[in-house]
Design a protein around this nucleic acid. Structure first.
Lengths: 223, 223
DNA sequence: TTTAATTGATAGTAATACTGTTATATTTGC
DNA sequence: GCAAATATAACAGTATTACTATCAATTAAA
């Protein structure tokens, strides 16, 4: 994965940012340390002022890249899902067996990230933890319909759709392909959260993974 | 349901509040209009000051009932899950057929609330919408482990456990009963959200319900 | 090297999330 | 029915948040 992606840029809907953080050194520092600080203190306590202190830069400079911390979260989540989508497409496109293909796809969308290797300034392991803990907050807002119209969630929706299409290929008669696909992706994040904080209501732990659970669930349902 | 519950009090872990809102007229007004205001402007914009204005009462008076708006949310969510748990226990305890019992249980935890009838000052229809839109925010915090230790999530966990036990009864060999139970409950909220805001990634709409999807999913998996 | 663009420093504002104090109601116990 | 206890309202005050605006200092591009 490392070399394959070295000159590839993950693209995020342009309206999310005021100025592309990939276009400058400061922008990249905002992303890099934004990820680290959100993971460290949580999104709710995170402020641009604190991030400014951390990167030795000014609060107002950060505002020139993102209107608000909410937009920064939208940027990070879009980036993350685009990255997952890339992996999904890349890892499944040359698998001819449709069952194996869906199996691989489920693995990619449900696994936890263990290696930080692909992009220089983005720690994917920590970003994955942010997605687990904060992703819901990006859409559970009163502005969700307006922001959806602006295209802020296209990447996520496209990912779900790709998974749905693979489900349909396996069993075209199955009535709930979209719901199953969205349940797998959202549900995996939830199971990862539960294994870290509410162990009593999940079977996932160090030996059993969300991937196993959702693979079993999917193929039992589609058979 | 109306008469049966008329002298029943839903009980919420005591540490959540400073003073029991059920113990006074002001307390009940806080709950009643808190629900309405959170639904109206969203939890993120909701403040005790605004609620004070709405109920013609003082901000500092509300603080004598709840430490913070986060605690109010914990109160409302605990109340909601306790109410669902009551319905689950009540509606399933005299069903001897285990399959029918689980079917009923899934219906209760996944359906959307259409009637506001049981408790005078609590609008369950609107509370259900709040749960769909805001429940995740009650646990996706840096304080979740500390608050879990304090018992703030016991009711929710007990509900998931009850559903898990019914799943186990149907198929004792199934390995993922806890994960399936937590996926049904959390996943249903998510599907309700999707049908309102991201229609393209769900099959649920006016004719197809989350209940149908999760019933089908569960029994296909356990068979 | 001049100009343009970017960043940093500083100031300022309205709102948030509280805490504290004191006065005024309201309830309760006798 | 009245005093004492309790609850609520009104007001003041604080640190922080989530920005916006202005202008000076750097840095990059033509």
């Amino acid at each position: 994965m490392i070399n394959l992606l070295s000159n590839l840029k993950i693209s995020v809907p342009e309206k999310i940012f005021l100025k592309d953080p990939e276009s400058s050194k400061l922008g990249k520092r905002i992303i890099e340390h934004g990820i680290l600080l959100i993971e460290e203190i949580g999104f709710d306590s995170f402020t641009f002022k604190k991030l400014g202190v951390k990167i030795g830069s000014n609060e107002s400079s950060i505002y020139r890249y993102f209107e608000s911390k909410h937009k920064l979260l939208l940027y990070l989540t879009s980036w993350y899902w685009a990255w997952i989508e890339y992996q999904l497409v890349f890892a499944t496109h040359n698998i001819s067996d449709e069952k194996l293909q869906l199996e691989k796809a489920i693995e990619i969308v449900t696994r936890s990230i263990k290696e930080d290797s692909t992009f220089l300034h983005i720690n994917e392991v920590i970003l994955n933890r942010i997605i687990i803990n904060e992703y819901s907050k990006s859409y559970l807002t009163k502005e969700v319909d307006a922001e959806n119209k602006e295209g802020y969630f296209v990447i996520y929706k496209r990912l779900v759709t790709r998974l749905r299409d693979m489900i349909v290929k396996i069993n075209p008669k199955y009535t709930y392909a979209s719901s199953l696909a969205s349940t797998i992706i959202e549900g995996a994040l939830h199971q990862h959260f539960l294994k870290d904080h509410f162990k009593s209501i999940t079977d996932c732990d160090t030996t059993t993974t969300p991937t196993q659970f959702f693979t079993d669930l999917t193929f039992n349902t589609l058979r």
